Computed example of a mutant assay.
Amino acid sequence: MNLLTLFIFLFILFVIELGYFRIAYKYRIIDHPNQRSSHFKVTIRGGGIIFCIVMLLSPFYIGWQYGYFLSGLLLISLISFTDDIKPISNKVRIGFHLGAVALLFNQLGVYSLSLYWILFAFIFVIGIINAINFMDGINGITGGFGLVTLITFYYINKTIITFTNTNLLILPILAVLVFNFFNFRRKAKCFAGDVGSVSLGFIILFFLLQLIIKTNNFNYLFLLMVYGLDTITTILFRIIRKENIFQAHRSHFYQFWANEKKAPHLMVAALYTIAQCIVNLIVINISALSVVNLILMTIVSVVIFVLIRLMTEGATRIFAVRA
């Protein structure tokens, strides 16, 4: 992609985003603060719709070789955007997620694997998509994570091993940059919404799975490490407290800092982004680990993160059963 084309796409994405703002204002697609929110003003919801839109525009620039992936992205984005407008039941949402991931797996050739690996892959991918969605709670965190992850994919694709179309990687990077212009600020103009966080998760997993399939290197799972540690430990603590892990909450580590400690949202988002960037640099520069060593490193990372949370949040907050 040359510089002129890059600026043309940036301009188109800004126009699309601003056009969406007008539609959202007209039809009241907005986020009202509630007791579980980390924000305090009415804000446009669904600004992350450009993540899906830019990928759906990609065939006009790079061709139609990713039809199944794009069909899955459209399917999961439609149900997520509908959920942003009017709440959808979990059963319906999961049904659409299964259909979207089924299309994604067809694109990646996953169905050549054994049945138990296919079942595991469905659980893993849908779980990660929803984890990324749940982590979208403060200004800048989704955009920061998305940008550093996609740029890491671009670097790997350009300098280490080619695993996907380079221009297909550039397009979501541009979309995240435009979204960050409106979201990575103290008073955000828009939130990603489910359509943004879910579609971004779907896009990231597409590239991640392409990379793992190409290299057979499961180290690259650590490109999700910071989000993964927050999500895994939060689920563990909620299970210990006998809470419904599928209900909305403010129990994530980043929410503790943003809500209880009143740390600036952008500072928390920046720290998460920097932490993931450091992890990514390590992942890029280490040799592939065996499955056993990968599991051991994951366990050690979880234990260390649990200890950090215990020292900062305190055992009472983490383990006390709440009414």
Rank of each mutant, 00 (worst) to 15 (best):
N219F: 04
N219I: 05
L75M: 14
L174C: 05
V303D: 08
W257K: 10
F81N: 12
F206T: 03
V54T: 05
E17T: 11
K261P: 06
I151G: 14
I8A: 03
K26P: 15
F40Y: 03
G19P: 11
I151P: 15
C190G: 06
W64G: 03
I129D: 00
I212R: 00
M311D: 10
T152E: 08
Y254G: 08
I44K: 08
N139I: 05
I16Q: 12
I88P: 07
R238M: 07
H39F: 15
S38D: 01
V15R: 01
I203W: 08
V198I: 15
F21C: 12
I239R: 03
K189N: 04
T298L: 14
L4P: 01
K41A: 06
N139C: 08
L75C: 15
F305V: 02
R241A: 08
T142Q: 07
Q247G: 12
Q247R: 13
M297H: 09
G314D: 10
L169C: 06
Q65H: 07
I245Y: 03
G314L: 05
Q35S: 14
W64N: 02
L147S: 13
L113M: 12
V54C: 05
G109Q: 12
I232G: 11
C277E: 10
F69E: 02
L236Q: 10
R241L: 02
G67A: 07
L281H: 04
L174S: 02
R22H: 14
G48Q: 01
Y155M: 07
I245S: 05
I240M: 08
F145P: 00
V178H: 06
F206G: 03
T5D: 13
T273D: 00
F163M: 09
L174K: 10
T215L: 06
N165C: 04
L70H: 06
A100F: 14
S80Y: 13
G47V: 13
Q247W: 11
R45V: 03
F51S: 06
S290H: 06
L221C: 00
L296Y: 15
N157Q: 04
L296E: 13
N285V: 05
V176S: 06
A323I: 14
I299V: 15
S112H: 15
S290T: 14
P264E: 11
N280M: 10
G109N: 06
R45Q: 12
L200T: 01
I88K: 11
I212Q: 00
V268F: 15
